[in-house]
């Protein structure tokens, strides 16, 4: 099983999180910038309450989850208020490549369970959040492919990859990491796999786009129109 780990922290240099990437075999990582708010009324009066936050996303092996979270808690001193939070979300599906890279033992849904779920799902629609991480500049291609496969729309976020292997991206002692686009698409189960397949075919790791695709379960959604 694979999970998505989100770490929100104001820790700028990824020094405290990067060593974990190789320790726990986490090959898929990226980060985006965000803004948090500090809790001081004086600062808020002058509009100075904003704090720069960094959001780190990593795909992890579920078996290692407790260890990774414990290490992060210690490294970033998360027990202290305001230092950040870290949580995990299970994946509902991904490409097989991701599973192979992180964890060789499969623990996928078997056919019987899938069919049982299908009956259940017929009564109530189930939604998934498809996350595509792709080389900067390919976002439009992904959106068009997804739309052709039945997706309604999507949201674009800019981020940057974080490499697990330190040696290949160093120059004069500074790390060089490529920019990535992250595309979020909400889709129901019936079309989810079609969309993911189409994205992988058109812009996957066998192409220059180098897309990594996985989906997260959504328990409920409003605002979706077909």
């Amino acid at each position: 099983m694979i999970e998505l780990m989100c770490l929100i922290s104001s820790d700028k240099d990824d020094k405290s999180i990067k060593p974990l990437y190789s320790k726990y075999n986490m090959p898929f990582n990226f980060t985006i910038y965000g803004e948090g708010t500090a809790s001081s009324s004086l600062l808020e009066y002058f509009g100075l309450e904003k704090v720069k936050k960094y959001i780190y996303f990593s795909l992890i092996d579920q078996k290692e989850r407790t260890n990774i979270l414990q290490d992060i808690k210690e490294n970033l001193k998360l027990e202290k208020e305001g230092n950040g939070i870290c949580f995990t979300i299970p994946l509902s599906s991904s490409t097989k490549h991701i599973l192979n890279k992180i964890n060789d033992k499969e623990n996928t849904m078997d056919q019987k369970l899938k069919e049982e779920n299908q009956i259940e799902k017929d009564n109530k629609k189930e939604y998934h959040l498809i996350v595509t991480i792709i080389t900067e500049g390919y976002a439009e291609t992904v959106m068009n492919t997804a739309k052709n496969a039945g997706a309604g729309g999507g949201t674009l976020i800019n981020g940057r990859s974080l490499y697990q292997d330190k040696s290949k991206n160093m120059f004069l002692g500074f790390s060089i990491e490529p920019e990535k686009d992250v595309i979020l698409i909400v889709a129901d189960t019936s079309i989810k796999n079609n969309i993911m397949d189409a994205i992988v075919q058109k812009t996957g790791l066998k192409t220059k786009g180098g897309a990594i695709v996985f989906s997260l379960p959504i328990s409920d959604a409003v605002g979706l129109y077909e």
């Binding site: 099983m1 299970p90 599906s93 490409t95 490549h97 599973l99 080389t135 790791l205």
Partner: peptide, 26 residues
């Protein structure tokens, strides 16, 4: 240098079929 270092690698022999997980278990 940047362009050279961050070039997207194209993989050949990888399996990109989509697989579903039994996420409720976790």
């Amino acid at each position: 240098i940047f362009q050279f270092k961050t070039k997207q690698k194209i993989y050949k022999n990888i399996d990109e079929t989509i697989i579903d997980y039994d996420w409720r278990k976790s």
